[in-house]
Design a protein around this nucleic acid. Structure first.
Length: 572
RNA sequence: GCGCCCGUAGCUCAGUUGGAUAGAGCAUCUGCCUUCUAAGCAGGUGGUCGCGCGUUCGAAUCGCGCCGGGCGCGCCA
């Protein structure tokens, strides 16, 4: 067990002895903000004392009398208003690193209470190009899935694609009247987008076209064989595009159940809600009202339109019910734009009326918009949305130029591969680094600057370590750990906090915690690298110990970047 | 009008149960490549955490009020 966890458990049982009725789950041990205080601290006694109107320092004294962590810590100190400061014994630190070197752990532990989480993210639309609007959901959702899996949870990733809706009426009209088969063969998405835009514009001018689109939609919904065949082809063509993008991003889904999957569940759902008195007719539509909920009192959810059609609230309710039944999850996570907050509040509240309090935690993990440098929604110069494929191409192109400049001696194919890993990594990292709830200003220059707190900086640290090992002719990676230089100790202690960071990321759904941890790790490594010769260390013991430290750093960097969905290269 | 979010260094942003002297990147200034990759390192400059009041031993963080900005608010998703 990792040291901070041992301290935490012992501290909790000491608190339980002094305050038998206290909620010890708040008694947490965290890294100190400043190493001068120690390695780990607990602030919990101050809040416990406060709740009970006790003297915090006296409480700390009493708890300390029951606490024995002398096997791994120096004397525990009470500081300030009642902080407990813990300082690891060098031997305990070394033992932890040696265990990691033997691959007993990599500074994190699988959860003892695995849960099942369904994660809904990406959700692109059929017949439309994937664009920057999909990138945050895709990258955030994927990295949350990776983190939860690494910590030992069961994860079902579900791509809820937009494969149904009124747009198919127009697409069908376009397909039948204007389809350019040659264009479809070379650029299917472009051709379908062209058809949609053309017919959509015509619908605004010409009521006859609008009517034709309506009729095609009705035929599709009624199961017309020809329209179904075209619709299926549009989905298949779109899925090819999705797969190409996901392949480049290394994103995988366990299931892809689009909106159409729930078609036959919608009418019975509305009937049931009507029958149970949860929904009622309103202005020709069917709606669920939330009279008892001050937040939603003025915002009923429509589940059937006055024309008899269903909308996304209906589908989302059906989807939620299906997921609960199919996977029995402890948690369902929706990764979408923040503008859908009201919608998900309605869905969650409506579902509660329908199925009562569920065991599953429903989480709307929302994120801010991507803005252009003018502070307005991000568009190309001509005002179009930016296609994801173009964005990834440009990232790789720019990275290739830089790699070619910095490492002109490498063969072309290798520079291409480095550019791919660095370019895609830069895009992902730029998206994961800001707090997800902030609107984020998209900047090619910043994203691909490849300096400062960016993916390439982390990848570079990794590559430098690998370079050491290419030059090391001998030396065990499982050596005895002997830490002396301050840079070694700082680096070693930071390695120990990897698991804490992963847990915080999974708990708060915030990959930026991990980004910042890895950036600090890379920084502490580089300091060590500048100050502590590895291959030319003064003696064999130090050399081997430092090699082991390098290897552990590389492993944590690689594992951490993998959680972010970012690859590494051996050389760059 | 109501609701949600935001306001932290010149710019872009972090800031983990409220916790110790508010941090980073970029920009700028000064040093460091006969030594494991300088996509780097060490250091300097730079702050009324929008404003005010309150709660607290302690507030960027919690509460109330104001100012400024973004988004959302019934038949699109």
């Amino acid at each position: 067990m990792l040291p901070h966890k041992q301290i935490e458990l012992k501290l909790q049982s000491a608190v339980r002895e002094i305050l038998p009725d206290a909620d010890v789950s708040i008694v947490l041990v965290r890294p100190c903000p400043d190493p001068k205080f120690g390695d780990y601290q607990s602030n919990a006694l101050m809040s416990l004392a406060k709740q009970r109107k006790m003297n915090p320092r006296q409480l700390a004294e009493n708890v300390l009398a029951k606490l024995d962590v002398s096997d791994i810590c120096e004397k525990v100190e009470i500081a300030g208003a009642g902080f407990l400061n813990f300082r690891l014994k060098p031997a305990a630190l070394a033992l932890t690193l040696e265990a990691a070197a033997r691959s007993v752990h990599l500074f994190f532990e699988k959860t003892s209470t695995p849960k099942t989480a369904v994660i809904d993210f990406s959700s692109p639309n059929v017949a439309k190009p994937m664009h920057v609007g999909h990138i945050r959901s895709t990258i955030l959702g994927d990295s949350l899935a990776r983190a939860l899996r690494l910590l030992g949870h069961r994860v079902v990733t579900d791509n809820h694609i937009g494969d149904w809706g009124t747009q198919f009426g127009m697409l069908l009209v376009g397909w039948k009247r204007e389809l350019n088969s040659a264009a479809l063969a070379t650029d299917a998405i472009g051709e379908m987008e062209r058809l949609y835009k053309k017919i959509s514009a015509e619908c605004k001018e010409n009521p006859a076209v609008l009517e034709a689109a309506r009729q095609e939609l009705v035929k599709l919904q009624a199961g017309d064989a020809e329209n179904l065949k075209i619709w299926r082809e549009m989905i298949a063509l779109s899925q090819k595009q999705f797969d190409a993008i996901y392949g480049r991003l290394d994103v995988k889904f366990d299931v892809t159940l689009g909106e159409s999957f729930y078609n036959d569940k919608l009418a019975p759902l509305v009937d049931e809600l009507l029958k149970k008195g949860i929904a009622r007719e309103s202005e020709g539509a069917i709606a669920i009202f939330f009279e008892d909920n001050p937040q939603l009192k003025a915002h009923p959810a429509l589940i059937r339109k006055s024309d008899g059609g269903f909308n996304y609230s209906t589908t989302d309710l059906a989807t939620l019910a299906y997921r609960l039944e199919k996977w029995n999850p402890d948690e369902i996570i929706y990764v979408t734009d923040g503008r859908q907050q009201l919608h998900f509040q309605q869905i969650f509240a409506a579902f509660k009326k329908w199925h009562g309090e569920s065991k599953a935690k429903l989480a709307h993990v929302w994120f801010g918009s991507i803005l252009g440098e003018d502070g307005k929604p991000f568009k190309t110069r001509s005002g179009e949305t930016v296609k994801l494929s173009d964005l990834l191409n440009e990232a790789e192109d720019r990275a290739f130029k830089i790699v070619s400049e910095k490492s002109s001696e490498l063969p072309d194919a290798q520079r291409k591969e480095i550019a791919r890993v660095v370019g895609i990594g830069a895009v992902k990292y730029a998206d994961l680094l800001p707090n997800r709830q902030s609107d984020y200003v998209f900047s090619w220059d910043k994203m691909l600057a490849l300096q400062g707190n960016t993916a390439p900086y982390l990848q570079y640290a990794y590559a430098r370590i690998k370079s050491i090992f290419r030059k090391a002719e001998s030396g065990s990676r499982e050596a005895e750990i002997k830490l002396a230089a301050p840079e070694e100790i700082v680096l070693a202690k930071h390695l120990l906090n990897f698991g804490l960071t992963l847990e915080a990321m999974a708990e708060e759904y915030r990959p930026n915690f991990l980004c910042n941890y890895l950036f600090e790790l890379a920084g502490k490594f580089t300091s060590f690298y500048e100050n502590c010769p590895v291959l030319k260390a003064e003696n064999e013991t130090t050399r081997n110990s430092r090699l082991a430290l390098c290897d552990l750093t590389a492993r944590v960097l690689k594992q951490g970047l993998d959680v972010l969905g970012i690859e590494v290269v051996e050389q760059m």
